[in-house]
């Protein structure tokens, strides 16, 4: 067998000539140390995010005016939620169109904070519209009105959406 063949065979039998090649000047310890430092900075940034959230909440949404709306969906294979529109006292608060990933997250039990804003204390009107598609391809659109009272403490309202097939009201709103 020629020298060429022997060389090539050797390379092949070594289990793939290009399996792993690590630069000589980078040791595993270096990589681990760097990995540790990356983990530390992630921890730092998470702590900054938490402090920043508190500050933002105090500054932008003080307790006596804060209202937060959350959306969850009931498990319903016959209905696909496409969008939600929410009005508070006749003013558009938010309009959200769902991506596939967001919808999947809701279907797995996640709860979306769809809106955080400010309203004065007292009674308010909430209008929730859900737009979606039924399994048979028909578009589904439903709007319901609710009222809620805003006190001096932050207000959190949970909105649960369901398709028409589940035999109960499609939109439910409750205090949390």
């Amino acid at each position: 067998m020629s020298r060429l063949i022997r060389t090539l065979m050797l390379l092949l039998l070594a289990g793939g000539p290009f399996a792993t090649s690590v630069a000589q000047d980078i040791s595993g310890d270096d990589m681990r140390s760097l990995d540790g430092q990356v983990q530390e900075i992630k921890s730092d940034v998470l702590s900054i995010a938490s402090e920043l959230n508190n500050l933002e909440e105090r500054l932008l949404y003080p307790s006596n005016t804060q209202v937060a709306l959350f959306v969850a969906i009931e498990d319903d294979e016959d209905f696909r939620l496409d969008a939600v529109k929410i009005e508070i006292d006749g003013e558009l608060a938010t309009h959200h169109i769902y991506s596939y990933k967001e919808l999947e997250a809701l279907q797995k039990g996640g709860v979306q904070r769809i809106y955080t804003g400010n309203v004065p204390t007292g009674d308010h009107q909430l209008s929730v519209t859900m737009i979606g598609m039924l399994k048979n391809g028909t578009e589904f659109n439903k709007t319901d009105q609710f009222s809620f009272a805003k006190g001096v403490e932050p207000k959190a309202l949970g909105i649960t959406l369901a398709g028409p097939g589940l035999g109960k009201s499609g939109i439910q709103v409750g205090d949390w």
Binding site: F70, E102, A105, K108, G109, G110, V111, Q112, R113
Partner: peptide, 10 residues
């Protein structure tokens, strides 16, 4: 639930 919503999206 909100934390899960983000986690389920990665």
């Amino acid at each position: 639930g909100e934390a899960l919503y983000y986690a389920h999206q990665g």
